[in-house]
């Protein structure tokens, strides 16, 4: 069990290292180095940089040294929380990302919980009552949901939310809290704004998840241990919830890892439509503007999030599946 945990942790560290290399390569990709870009951006605004000053900057970032030394310097700065400066914003990357990162995590988590909250019960119902009218209805809605692009759904819901319910759609904050520092009022305001974007983001994965849950559970319902549980006199719904649903949920625990980055990067268009202050639209802008320090940092963070998520789902799997605890895989 400890070996398993350590092994997973080791793999996570190696993966994070690999991601950091890729992020570094991304940052290095545009022609010229960071200082060239910096000088260019400064001269665009009218001020000049003296040759010695440029040289000093190059030395500070180790740009005159071999590539692995540059990587090492960059990595050690990143480890201390210094991600460099965003060219486009003219501010440190950490400042630009700031709250956006946590808002993204909040929106994503809310969306994930909503997805599960909607999809799992429907999936269970559809499997237990296979080929019933409700099963067919959910299947139909599910396929329509899969076929309709999310941003379109977002636009439609925004339109009807505005026209019918006079909802303040778009964004995560009301105007007066947009730039205000954190307070109870702002937190409450966030809670009021969160459900709609979370729901729209959640609907993306719901249809798919219903199908997966239904298929998993249909497989499990035919296993002999279900009949065994029934034969000892257990009530039907307890049979289903305790045994086959438990087994059908197992594959979900292993997908927690890539849900998070999927919600972040897969929702860029929806986030733009809903003007959410999350990381997705920022990544898009950074890429368009070739703001490589910002883009590289976001890629790095998304990668690390995935690794952390996968590590957590490994731990959860170990916690819920005795076979893995016992060291029997599969």
């Amino acid at each position: 069990m400890l070996t398993y945990t350590l092994q997973r942790f080791g793999l996570a560290l190696i993966t994070i290292w690999a991601i950091s290399v890729i992020s570094f390569v991304i940052i290095q990709l545009p022609p010229g180095d960071f200082v060239d870009a910096y000088i260019a951006s400064l001269s665009a605004s009218g001020s000049m940089v003296r040759q010695e000053e440029a040289q000093a900057l190059r030395q500070l970032y180790g740009l005159d040294q071999p590539i692995w030394v540059q990587y090492w310097k960059w990595a050690s700065r990143v480890a201390q929380g210094d991600f460099g400066t965003s060219m486009e914003w003219g501010r440190p990357v950490t400042e630009v990302l700031g709250d956006r990162l946590w808002l993204t995590v909040a929106v994503s988590l809310a969306a994930i919980f909503l997805t599960w909250g909607i999809a799992l019960p429907i999936g269970i119902y559809s499997a237990v009552r296979q080929y019933s009218m409700a099963d067919y209805a959910f299947t139909l809605i599910g396929f329509v949901g899969l076929a309709v692009p999310n941003f379109l759904l977002a636009l439609i819901i925004m339109y009807f939310g505005f026209v019918l319910f006079d909802l303040n759609v778009g964004g995560l904050f009301s105007a007066e809290y947009q730039l205000a520092p954190w307070s109870w009022g702002k937190a409450k305001d966030l809670m009021a704004h969160l459900p709609l974007p979370a729901l729209i983001l959640a609907l993306a994965g719901t249809a798919q998840l219903i199908r997966i849950m239904r298929a998993n559970l249909l497989d499990e319902l035919r296993r002999p241990y279900v009949a065994t549980a029934r034969a000892r006199g257990l009530a039907e719904w307890r049979v289903i919830v305790k045994y086959p649903v438990r087994a059908a949920l197992n594959p979900f625990a292993s997908t927690i890892g890539y849900l998070l980055p999927f919600v972040v990067s897969g929702s860029i268009v929806v986030s733009l439509v809903l003007s959410l202050p999350t990381v997705g639209p920022l990544l898009l802008r950074a890429l368009v503007a070739q703001d490589m320090f910002l883009a590289g940092t976001i890629v790095l963070l998304l990668g690390v999030l995935t690794v952390i998520g996968t590590f957590i789902s490994d731990l959860i799997l170990m916690w819920i599946d005795p076979r893995i605890r016992a060291g029997i895989h599969g």
Partner: peptide, 24 residues
Amino acid sequence: RDIRGGEIGYVFQEPMSSLSAFYT
């Protein structure tokens, strides 16, 4: 349900898959 297990016990054919692996 009272009769199942309470009056009539049932031993199944496949001991390998008739017990759930998730519980002791």
